[in-house]
Amino acid sequence: MNETIERMLQHRSIRKFEDRPLSDEEITTIVRSAQAASSSSFVQAYSIIGVKDPVKKQKLSELAGNQQYVAENGHFFVFCADLHRHELLGEKEGAEIETALESTEKFMVAVIDAALAAQNAAVAAESMGMGICYIGGLRNHLDGVAEILKTPDRVIPLFGLAVGYPAQNPGVKPRLPIGGVYHEDTYLPDEKHWEQLEEYNRIVSEYYTGRTAGARSDTWTGQMAAMLSHPSRMYMKEFVNKKGFGNK
């Protein structure tokens, strides 16, 4: 096992960072690493907005559910699905591309491209001794986020990435058994899923019991059922369509 894989397998979310801004060189290295990710048909349908302004970071923190590590980190990146530049290139080339830009397929391409770039950025940052935390809470109030970041139509802020030098050392959360996510030739039958979920519940419950000295003993299925019983961000389809994505 090489050093890169060892570091990836030790990933954990960091929610407390040293008061140490990333240098411009570190930011550039992370962004260049993000750009090296695969992109569907070379479309490169994403943008990254780096937020240094402490006032903007604090506002984003509030919109994301008062997560203070959105405001207090070495640097905050926002990954966006972006077809705006493609709209511009359509004008430049005199090409009719609106139908393609509004398609659900190109929406998926933009989201996937952004996610691939973000994970490259995360691995790069961790390889440099930093920690990261993805921030999906930005999607709580996307109108507000879009206003702060001045994103035009055909650009959707998808999630944030808080990066910095760790000021904590949390444990690694146990993931699903490999057999629960890796299927060979055909999708697993339900009885295999049930078996794996039971085993995973035991592992997760033991993890929380040890981490909290017995104060928590949650199971994974219990956590997920509780979360999914309260649908969130149900405005998303309307927002996505309003921004010119997924209308066809």
Rank of each mutant, 00 (worst) to 15 (best):
4 T>S: 11
4 T>I: 13
12 R>C: 08
13 S>F: 01
15 R>Q: 00
17 F>Y: 04
19 D>H: 00
21 P>L: 07
23 S>K: 05
24 D>E: 14
24 D>L: 03
28 T>D: 08
30 I>G: 10
30 I>F: 09
34 A>Q: 09
37 A>C: 08
38 S>G: 15
39 S>C: 13
39 S>A: 15
39 S>E: 12
39 S>V: 11
44 Q>A: 09
54 P>T: 02
56 K>T: 02
59 K>T: 08
61 S>N: 00
63 L>S: 05
65 G>N: 01
69 Y>I: 01
69 Y>H: 07
69 Y>C: 01
73 N>P: 03
80 C>G: 05
80 C>W: 01
81 A>T: 00
83 L>V: 01
84 H>M: 05
85 R>G: 01
91 E>W: 09
92 K>T: 15
92 K>V: 13
93 E>K: 13
95 A>K: 15
95 A>Q: 15
96 E>A: 09
98 E>Y: 08
98 E>V: 14
99 T>Y: 15
100 A>H: 12
101 L>Q: 04
103 S>I: 13
107 F>S: 03
109 V>A: 09
109 V>F: 13
110 A>T: 05
112 I>N: 13
113 D>A: 04
117 A>Q: 03
118 A>C: 12
121 A>N: 07
122 A>R: 13
127 S>A: 14
133 C>G: 02
134 Y>A: 03
135 I>H: 05
137 G>K: 01
139 R>S: 07
142 L>E: 04
143 D>A: 03
146 A>Y: 00
146 A>P: 02
150 K>T: 13
156 I>S: 09
158 L>K: 06
162 A>R: 01
162 A>H: 06
170 P>C: 00
170 P>Y: 00
173 K>C: 04
178 I>L: 13
179 G>I: 00
188 L>Q: 15
190 D>F: 15
190 D>V: 15
191 E>R: 15
202 R>G: 14
205 S>E: 11
206 E>H: 07
208 Y>C: 03
215 A>R: 14
217 S>N: 12
219 T>L: 04
221 T>S: 12
224 M>E: 06
225 A>P: 07
234 M>Y: 06
234 M>A: 11
238 E>G: 06
243 K>D: 07
246 G>M: 13
247 N>R: 13
247 N>A: 07
